[in-house]
Design a binder for these strands. Structure first.
Lengths: 325, 325
DNA sequence: GTCTTTTGATGCCCATTAGGCATCAAAACG
DNA sequence: CGTTTTGATGCCTAATGGGCATCAAAAGAC
């Protein structure tokens, strides 16, 4: 031993005692009875005597007054009991809490989503996740794909439901949850409204309500490519975000917009949805998260494993597939 | 071992770890570096590795993510650190505080005193005690002897400055601090005022201001005995308490009263003090406290040792003797 | 009074284990 | 591609927590 100047209980760290001493002392101090305390602690009485003596020596203070028959607390003992009890109580709660947190029974997750997710898989996943992991608090923010990617890399969110049309940053893992061909949303009085499934070409003359390209460039580009493929150069009347707000503009007669069947479930009567015949822009929804450290994976800069996230990914994987409700 | 179902760190008490584990974890979590933490703890690095592994197993949670090169906190580890830090800080202060308390460097004392004490030894004792034991808070209450005796027995005060004229209860220890013959306090226009030291007999015709017998029966009786010894039956005009208030009544011309030279230091000009010639009532001042448990003293029902009180008794013993300041 | 019971302290011994040293394997670095 | 750094492991020893038996003192029984 490099520094054997203290022949006492604990080594050199700041504490001349161990938890054991405090717990033993607490029990004796409460019962004022070595034998009973020893039994309560399932320890032999001599061990208690010794432990208490050690603690007293370590603190350089008499804590108990043993009168062979009666055990009393000295002022120092009384003070120690008062000091130690709340600390022990606090400490007692720690293992359970940490275990829960590590077991995915507790914790909290920050996530982002786009309108399509909320219209399809998200509610079901959240319901199931809440059932299985009631202790985990989920923080939800609607946010465009591009912002989600930034937030994921910055560690501001743990996972996101977004559209994988942009180039995804390295280290991001995704799971495809949904792919749906877009149809068009038209005012009920539009001339194509009576046609059950128009083509893109049919829509050449119709002004469109789209979204800002910056919010999802890949998808925007694919829409444009689809138009181009049909030999059409669309007129963009408005750009709104979130996309669901396009509904209002369509109803106001400002033009048509794209939407997936899932999102078009509940529409006001002045608006109709029509699937597109022939080529149509496809919307894909993924759940994305940063690759985690795994034993031996060597990921650099990646966040450490998070049981809460793992639990969510599991539930999302099991529940997410299938049509939106 | 009776219950060997857990091959883990600690025994059965409530905590699956020891303080050591937490301290080690804190250090590693702060530095995110085993080797440096080991050095800071003056412990070999393998011991740290093992201790951390134990803690993780005990909590059933990964606390650190070791990537061979980088050490990171998992969410559980982060949570543990946050939980544990304040507790360890709180615990770190305990030994010093307890030591101080046991060493008489801290604590608090409740004591009572009579007017004579305040007029003589008490200020000096308190000044010296405050200098030597700045950490000990002293609570002072003026209180008649009889009340002090009751309070001492009930444990409501730790010691008291009083007059040992009553029968003292068993278990009480006292130390004589002062004995002074009483003189008389007279209005400046009293007929005996020009006499440098009257006798009790001279005062036969003078009405007296005394104190309620119940507040100090022994002293009251001794005053009466002194009068009787001089063949005088005094007329008691008023009874006041505390005795110092008699000064006001004397000044108002209601009569004379007894007082010790020490108490008569600072008097208004309308009042004069005269020592008594011949027999005179004597005031004694003691410091009294309950006998304590001492190794092998076998005192029963007595309070346990109190270092703060011991310290005060020491100071009082050294400083108390001698004339009042 | 004496005998019994109760209680905390001690002596002794063993099983456990904390921790030291040497070493290893993997990753980072030049 | 060797060198360095870092955390993990194997092995061993010293320390010690704790069990059993026992003791001494005090309280209670008679």
């Amino acid at each position: 031993m490099p520094n054997g100047h203290q022949k006492t209980v604990a080594r050199d760290y700041q504490f001349p005692f161990e938890l054991r001493h405090l717990v033993y002392f607490r029990e004796v101090a409460r019962r004022l009875h070595f034998r009973q305390a020893a039994e309560a602690l399932s320890v032999a009485q001599p061990a208690l005597s010794r432990s208490l003596a050690q603690l007293e020596e370590a603190l350089g203070a008499d804590l108990l007054n043993r009168t062979r028959r009666r055990v009393e607390l000295t002022p120092a003992g009384k003070a120690l009991l008062e000091r130690v009890e709340p600390l022990l109580r606090g400490l007692a709660a720690v293992p359970g809490d940490i275990r829960a947190l590590a077991g995915g029974q507790a914790g909290h997750l920050r996530m982002a989503f786009t309108g399509l997710a909320m219209a399809t898989v998200l509610p079901r996943i959240l319901r199931e996740f809440g059932r299985r992991h009631p202790g985990i608090r989920v923080e939800l923010n609607e946010s465009p794909t591009s912002a989600q990617l930034t937030a994921l890399q910055a560690g501001d969110i743990d996972c996101g439901f977004f559209h994988p049309d942009a180039t995804l940053p390295a280290g991001l893992q995704t799971r495809l949850l949904l792919r749906e061909k877009n149809g068009v949303l038209l005012p009920a009085d539009h001339r194509l409204a009576k046609q059950p499934s128009p083509t893109l070409k049919d829509l050449a003359a119709t002004p469109f309500v789209l979204f800002p390209r910056a919010n999802n460039p890949g998808f925007h580009d694919r829409i444009m490519a689809a138009f181009a493929g049909a030999g059409v150069s669309p007129r963009i009347a408005e750009e709104v975000w979130p996309r669901a707000n396009g509904v209002g503009l369509v109803r106001a007669g400002l033009g048509a917009t794209f939407m997936t069947p899932s999102e078009a479930k509940h529409l006001p009567p002045e608006i109709i949805f029509r699937p597109l015949r022939g080529p149509a822009p496809e919307s894909r929804l993924v759940l994305g998260w940063l690759a985690r450290h795994r034993p031996g994976d060597g990921g650099r800069g990646a966040p450490p494993p998070d049981p809460a996230l793992d639990a969510f990914l599991t539930v999302a994987g099991e529940t997410g597939k299938g049509t939106g409700r």
